[in-house]
Amino acid sequence: MSDIVGKVLSIILAFILLCIAPLSMVTLMEELADRRSIMNEVANFVDEIIDSKSLTQDNLADFYIAIASYGPVVDAKVVRYVREINPDPLSAGTTYTSYVVADNMFQWNQGDLVKVTVNQIGVTGPQRFIMGTIGLVLSEFDYTQAGRIR
């Protein structure tokens, strides 16, 4: 029992290197893979809307289930921008285009824009783990995708 400090330090280091390091590595990768999966789901959903020119409650429910099936708890918001073309009051004969947010998002016209925003609520397990173990702050997940109805 001559070198008690060295033994304790070795045990702590061995624990960190053999347990915490691989575990936090794996959780970090999992977290980022989940983010990518959610991004893909959003892209699919936007594609679905802009190609089919329609959105139903069922589509929406499917989308919510799809993004909820990964790690982070996320909130999704679908916004429909209606295209408005009006005569320009400043110069006669010309028009200007503006996009106005519409309440009814189950009926789409060609030229409308759809914007799907997904943002994370709270902190995920991996985020907290990485924060606690290696002190790395992983920013919250926030993703937006927009497209034009064909």
Binding site: S10, L13, L136
Partner: peptide
Amino acid sequence: TGMILVVPLFFLVMSFLLYLTML
């Protein structure tokens, strides 16, 4: 022991760097 402990410490630092680059 002190000299040997340098090796795992080195690994520890390297794994942190690996994290950061991977992230």
